[in-house]
Simulated scan of single mutants.
Amino acid sequence: MPVSVSAPEHYAVHRLLLPTMRFRTPRGQAKRSNEVAQASALSSVLLVVCPDELAAVWAEARK
């Protein structure tokens, strides 16, 4: 069965942007902190491994 997986840099940017869209509920707050932690961990690795790709995806997301 084929599976579609996002590029790591796309996933990291998605995880950074998603918390800004969360509702201010207790469940949203819990999810928000988890998403920020995931984005931080992944982004710190991607900044070393593929900084240009991460920068390009971030620039595209900010348009």
Rank of each mutant, 00 (worst) to 15 (best):
M1H: 12
V3R: 10
S4W: 08
S4A: 12
V5T: 11
V5K: 06
V5P: 01
S6W: 06
S6A: 14
S6P: 02
P8I: 14
E9T: 13
H10T: 11
H10P: 00
A12N: 01
A12K: 06
V13Y: 10
H14E: 06
H14S: 05
H14M: 09
R15D: 07
R15P: 00
R15Y: 05
R15F: 09
L16G: 00
L16F: 09
L16R: 14
L17S: 09
L17Q: 12
L18H: 04
T20Y: 02
T20I: 00
M21V: 06
M21L: 11
R22Y: 10
F23Y: 03
F23L: 08
F23N: 04
R24L: 03
T25V: 03
P26N: 04
R27C: 05
Q29N: 08
Q29W: 08
A30I: 02
A30V: 02
A30W: 07
K31S: 06
R32V: 01
R32C: 12
S33N: 10
S33I: 14
N34K: 08
N34D: 10
E35T: 02
E35S: 06
E35L: 14
E35R: 10
V36N: 01
V36S: 00
A37L: 09
A37C: 02
Q38T: 01
A39L: 05
S40H: 10
A41C: 03
L42G: 04
L42S: 01
L42D: 01
S43A: 11
S43E: 04
S44M: 10
V45L: 09
V49C: 02
V49S: 04
V49F: 04
P51D: 08
D52G: 14
D52C: 11
D52V: 09
D52I: 05
L54S: 08
L54V: 03
A55S: 15
A55I: 11
A56R: 15
V57N: 13
A59L: 15
A59V: 09
E60G: 08
R62S: 13
K63W: 06
